[in-house]
């Protein structure tokens, strides 16, 4: 580059330099003044801002004060499980073996150990993602999910026991089921109902994508599936994080609940 030209450009004698810098600076200053000071002042009736500094902070995106509203407390126990995607990856062989040992006490109902199958109407656990099993076990323990049957079995489980069980079930193979006639995917499962805010079930439950903490539904007893959907809809089951399933089940008709339950139960 030509040195002489460079010098001449960044100089107060150069009209282009002075003009463009002044223009740009003026533009930035005026838009900042209007955006950060004048407009928030004009809207202060809405936001109830006390001082100049408050209004600048609010316009800049800094919350000046925490909201004064008291948060609404739930009247039931909510799930406290934090599902961390890395947590269940690569379990040790030891953990799986320990899980299997504990799982023998559960096999009478849930199957999944050495060729046993779940007994109606308990759900299958073999092959379920670790995060889903772990979350349900912890929820039964804290009382976020209520089941008279399950309560007695989870009380003695430590956190490590729960992790071991999850690790075991996640890799356990489900025993082959008797061949069942596949049912056509009902619309509520295939595409959900966008206008009612029901996404396609498969976008979380596996056929499209399997989101963390979400169980497989394939081959679960129809009575169990129907009961769970009904429980979400009526608010008897409340352990789903962010009401993911409650919001869905509430917007399903009972015919759709029935169809979805029968469809998933009919799958191998």
């Amino acid at each position: 580059m030509n040195e002489a030209r460079e010098e001449a450009l960044f100089s107060l004698a150069n009209r282009w330099f002075v003009g463009s810098v002044t223009f740009t600076a003026a533009l930035a200053i005026v838009s900042a003044l209007v955006g950060l000071i004048i407009l928030p002042r004009l809207q202060s009736d809405v936001v109830d801002l006390k001082g100049l500094w408050d209004s600048i902070c609010s316009a800049a995106g800094v919350a000046a004060r925490p909201s004064s509203e008291t948060p609404v407390e739930a009247t039931f126990v909510t799930s406290t499980v934090q599902l961390n995607p890395g947590r269940f990856a690569h379990p040790s062989a030891e953990s799986i073996a320990r899980g299997k040992a504990i799982a023998r006490t559960c096999a009478a109902c849930h199957g999944g150990v050495d060729g046993t199958r779940a007994k109606f109407p308990s759900p299958n656990l073999a092959g379920q993602p670790a995060g889903a099993i772990f979350k349900q076990l912890r929820d039964y323990q804290t009382g976020a999910r209520v089941s008279v049957v399950m309560r007695q079995y989870v009380q003695a489980l430590s956190e490590q026991d729960a992790l071991d069980l999850s690790a075991y079930y996640a890799q356990a193979r489900r025993e082959a089921e008797p061949v069942r006639l596949g049912m056509r995917e009902p619309p509520i499962v295939a595409i959900g109902s966008p206008t009612r805010n029901v996404p396609a079930c498969g976008s979380c439950h596996g056929s499209g994508d399997l989101k963390i903490g979400t169980p497989w539904l394939d081959g679960q007893p129809v009575v169990y599936l129907r009961a769970q959907l009904a429980a979400y809809a009526s608010g008897r089951r409340t352990n789903d994080i962010d009401k993911q399933m409650r919001n869905i089940a509430r917007n399903m008709s009972s015919a759709e609940i029935d169809e979805a339950a029968r469809y998933y139960a009919s799958r191998p």
């Binding site: 838009s31 900042a32 209007v34 955006g35 407009l39 600048i56 316009a59 995106g61």
Partner: peptide, 17 residues
């Protein structure tokens, strides 16, 4: 919601330009 309204205004001014 994480961006302040003031910065939104500044950006919209330049967008007009």
């Amino acid at each position: 919601p994480e961006v302040g309204a003031g910065f939104k205004f500044m950006h919209s001014t330049l967008t007009a330009l």
